[in-house]
Structure formats: structure tokens, C-alpha cells
Design a protein around this nucleic acid. Structure first.
Lengths: 308, 308
DNA sequence: ATCACACTTGCACAAATGTTCAACGAAATT
DNA sequence: AATTTCGTTGAACATTTGTGCAAGTGTGAT
């Protein structure tokens, strides 16, 4: 342990005057290695303190905590005080995707309002020559604007890449119909893609009774809905429902669903969820615990609630 | 110029989470060079601030200012709140000397209370095998304790080195006497040493009328004193008097003085002055402006007054 | 005094960081 | 539209920093 006076002196010359360690060593007639060690000591003993002075520095702290608590690869937060939160979130997701996408990547997408919004927010995308594939079947109505195919197609266009379409709704009337579709040669290719994704980008569905219940859920029969309610579903990801403990629900419904399975999804290296709101907190939390996604883009309010 | 959001993010990972630049680059999918640049930007824009939390961090700031203002090689300050300031100063000077002295150095010393005190404060000196020489003649009375020779001898003993004595008082009765002495072969050797010093350690004398007028000044004749007063002497270094503008005074007295000349002194690479007190401020200031010394050891009160 | 131990130092190497340069791409100008 | 200009980027190189190791130094016990 060294003289505090000396430590301070060294820290001052290094951090305030920006001298190199060699210069300081010459000044003080001490070996350079010692300077290096004195500086580590200065940091350990908090003789020097380093602060970050920005409004959103707190966000980063939150990100780190969340990342640690759920063992995530990454967390990206936006400030909850934005006027249009959903828009801001979409923009952030767009930037994030742009940042991590690499040439020839295979990118899978589910859908939902967040993802649809995202596409529009993508500015100056780079030519990645990536391939974009849907992870779930389409919604009931042929509402082009929110159709998975539209999302995938627009995204591919912006990135100068290719896209693959999906020609079926997410939920079929019977498991036989569903199996039939999935056994088609074209679907087999899609399934193969699902197993080799580089990046997956998914939304998270909240509880069934929530007002803004998303468009596609009209595909569920009243029986499905009853069943899910009974089993305490708190949300879905890629049309797979689960409860607060991460238990997958409604196996019968599952078998009528055309979508990537959560297990397959888990094989993707980068699995990003984009979701926010108080209502979705339990759904997000369960999904994180299950390890289905390893990257989360949300706002700080949601993040705060996820910490407990 | 980059996105502040990104800069903050990078700064956080680097300074708070202690990741390396390469790791951050991988996280954010950015080239490492860019991270380096972002960090410089973060510092420039004060997005990160680095503080030093020590009582005497302010001293260092003062030191830096003083150093800049007078173009000094180094400044070493002690805290003015010490109970015995002169003792503390002596101790600091001792440590400083110990720190910078190198094997076989040739070290010159003037005298004064500060330097005398210093010798006693030198603990655990290293064997430097240095040579110590007086820069000025002795005082009038044969007060062994404060004699230059004593200082030089004691110091040499502590450093396991050699010392050279001086066998004359600082001021002679006539220039002829003085010239005679200085022409002696032994003095010629001393003079040669003066021209090749590695380190010079000097005190600074304050104004004449000051109460604690130092011991040696009884060598001055009443005429000398009158002359100096008339020419507005504010202090001396190595028995050479000067005024506030750095003009050397009393050439007649000079010619009767046995001491290194300030010009010769200036040829020494490391020239340290040890002095403090309100009264000596003008003397110190003038000496610094003249460039006679390039290293100053004092207390922060004196330092503050020197800044204006 | 001698030994043993803990602790510090400097050297040499490994890792991390800063910087130059050439190529690229976006805006602005013709 | 073609061309110029400006600013950004990554790769390679130069510099700076961190660290394991062996040698040195002081301290305390025997």
C-alpha cells in the first residue's frame, strides 16, 4: 500500500493533466510499472472517481441490472418520457437491427404492432443482402399493412435482401390441416430456415383480456380462449401461449398453429424481443426466465417492473 | 460528431463496467477505432468527468498553475495547516532531494535555516555516492550548527557521499582579498564544480529590514546595508541581492562576495529553491521570473500569493 | 547475526489503446 | 447526372499500459 499523497499526485498527472505513465515516471523518478500499479490503487480506493453526466446514464445502469438478472446477451432501453413511446421503441428496434445485422444473415420475424411500426422507422439501412423469413403464419383478415409477409417484404427491400413468404394463417381449424400445410415441400424449406436463423426478432403478446387485444387472436375459437383463460395464460410469443411459470399451454391449439416452436427459436444466436407496457410485464418476465429471448428492447418503466 | 446516446453507452461500458474497447466494439458491432474516438469525444465533451477525491488534490492544481505561470520544471507544495510549517517544509525538501538524487551527482547547497533544518529531516537516505559542495562562503560567527560546511558534511554523510568545504566567509572586506582567495588553486576546483552541478539547492533571503534577518548579514557593512536599502533590495539568493524587477544590485558588494554567481547557477539542470512566508513572496517571485531556479518547494499560502 | 517471510521493484513480454492513412459514402456543387 | 468536397470508417501500425516473474529490501522471529 502506497502513500496517499503520492497516489493522488500520480492520479492527478494521469487523469487531469493527461500525461503518459512514462512521463509521470520520469517526473517522479519512479519506475513506470509502479505508476501503473499506483493508478490501479487510485481507482480501487476511489481516490479517482469517474462519473457519466447524461440524462440517460441511469438507463444504462438499469440495462446492466436487467442483463445480469436474466442472463441476457443485451438489453436496450429507451426513455419512457418520449411522447410516442411505441414509435420511439420501434425506432430503437430498427436502429438496433441495423446495427447488428451482418451480410447474408438469415433473419426471422414474428409480427405485431411493434414490428410493423419498426419497418417504417428504418432509415438509411445498409445493403446487407440478408434473407428475411416469417416465423408465424399470417393474421385472419388480409390486412396487408400488418401481414407478416408485408413486414418481411418491406424489410428485405430496405436491406436490399430477399424475403420468404408464408401462405397460411397462424391458426388452422384442425391439426390435420396444419400438418398438411407444414408437410408441403415449400414449408419444409421454411422450417429448415427456422433452424438456422442468425437473428430472430419477435413481439410479445399480452394477456387475452386486454383491450387492445391484437388483431390475429380472432383466429382463436371460443373454446381456445376459454381454455387459455382457465390455464392462466399471461401472454404469447410466436403464437405459443404460456403461463407465469413459463409452462407452455393448450397443446391442442399448439398443434393447430403454424409457427416456429419456442425450442427451435432458442437455437438462434440472437433472439430479440421488442415489447413494452405494464400489461405485458408478466409475459415478458416469463419469456425472459424461459430463456426464449436473450435480447430485450423496451422502455425504462417496463424495465423497472421487470426487476422485481 | 456522434450521437450522444451512443457516446454515453460506450463511456458507460468502458468506465463503469471496465470492458475493453474491443469488447465494446463487439457488443455494439462497431470498429474498435471508432470506440477509441468515441471515448475521446466523451472526455472532451465532459460526458465523462474524472475527479480526484483527496484533501490535497487542490494543492496539485496550484502546483500546476504555478508551474505554468513561471515555466518551472517542478513545484512541490505542502499544506499550510501544518503545525510547524518550517519543519514540514524541511521534511518535504529532504524527501524531494532523496527522490531526485542520482548516483555520482554533484550537488551544490547554499544555506539558511530551511536547508539546515532539512538535513535533520532526511531519513533512510539511499547511498548515492554523490558529492556535496557549498555554493557560498560561511557566516561570520563560527556557529558550527549553521555553517555551510556542516550542512554539506552532514548531508554527504547521510548519502554515503563526499563533501567539499569552503574556507572563507561569504563577504570579504575588500574585492582584492576576495579575488585573492578565489584565485587559490583549491578555490578554482570549487569554481569548476559550480559550473558542473547536477543539482543546486538554495534558500532565499527576504528583505533586509525583516526581524528574523538571517545570521550571515552581519557581514554587511552599514554602507552595504544603506546601499541595498536605497536600491530597494527585496531579497537575496546565494548572497546576491536583487530588486523586484530582477535587477542585480550593489556591484561593489558583489565583488567582495564569495559565492556562485546567479548566471553560473543557471547552468545547473535542477535548481531548487526552498522558501516560504509572506515576507519572502516578492523575493521568491523575482527569482522565479529571473529563471534562477526552476523548482520550488513551498507551502500553499505562499504559492497562492505568488500567483498574482 | 541469521533466517524466513512478506512486500516492493524493475524488466520483459502481452494486451490494450491511439493514430495515420487510404478508401468509401453521403451531401453539395456544378 | 457528374463531380467535388467533406466527413467517417476500418485496417495497419505505433504507442502506451498491464502483468508475471525474478531479484531485491526491509522486518521480525529465532
Amino acid at each position: 500500500m502506497h502513500d496517499e499523497r503520492l497516489v493522488t499526485r500520480v492520479a492527478y498527472q494521469y487523469y487531469i493533466q493527461n500525461l503518459t505513465q512514462s512521463q509521470i515516471a520520469k517526473n517522479l523518478n519512479i519506475g513506470r510499472s509502479t505508476i501503473s500499479r499506483l493508478l490501479t490503487q487510485a481507482r480501487q480506493q476511489h481516490i479517482v472517481s469517474i462519473n457519466i453526466n447524461t440524462a440517460d446514464a441511469g438507463l444504462l445502469e438499469l440495462e446492466a441490472q436487467l442483463k445480469a438478472q436474466y442472463h441476457l446477451r443485451n438489453v436496450d432501453l429507451i426513455d419512457s418520457t418520449h411522447s410516442d413511446l411505441d414509435l420511439a421503441l420501434a425506432k430503437e428496434a430498427a436502429q438496433y437491427l441495423k446495427q447488428i445485422i451482418k451480410p447474408n444473415n438469415l433473419v426471422g420475424l414474428s409480427w405485431g404492432a411493434s414490428l410493423a411500426l419498426m419497418v417504417g422507422q428504418l432509415d438509411h439501412p445498409k445493403a446487407a443482402n440478408a434473407t428475411f423469413v416469417p416465423l408465424v403464419g399470417g393474421p385472419s383478415a388480409a390486412n396487408a399493412k400488418y401481414h407478416v409477409n408485408t413486414i418481411v417484404y418491406d424489410l428485405a427491400k430496405k436491406f436490399m435482401g430477399n424475403s420468404v413468404f408464408i401462405n397460411a394463417t397462424a391458426v388452422q381449424e384442425s391439426r390435420y390441416l396444419r400438418d398438411g400445410i407444414m408437410n408441403a415441400k415449400y414449408f419444409q424449406e421454411l422450417a429448415r430456415d427456422w433452424a438456422h436463423l442468425d437473428i430472430a426478432l419477435v413481439g410479445i403478446g399480452g394477456p387475452l383480456n386486454h383491450k387492445t387485444t391484437s388483431r390475429w387472436r380472432d383466429l382463436l375459437t371460443p373454446e381456445d380462449q376459454a381454455m387459455l383463460k382457465e390455464q392462466r395464460a399471461i401472454g404469447d410469443c410466436c403464437c405459443t401461449f404460456y403461463d407465469a411459470n413459463g409452462k407452455l399451454l393448450a397443446p391442442d391449439l399448439q398443434k393447430r398453429t403454424i409457427a416456429i416452436s419456442l425450442d427451435t427459436l432458442k437455437r438462434t444466436p440472437i433472439r430479440i424481443a421488442v415489447a413494452r407496457s405494464k400489461e405485458k410485464v408478466p409475459a415478458i418476465k416469463a419469456l425472459l426466465k424461459m430463456g426464449v429471448v436473450n435480447t430485450l428492447i423496451t422502455d425504462n418503466e417496463t424495465a423497472n417492473q421487470l426487476l422485481h
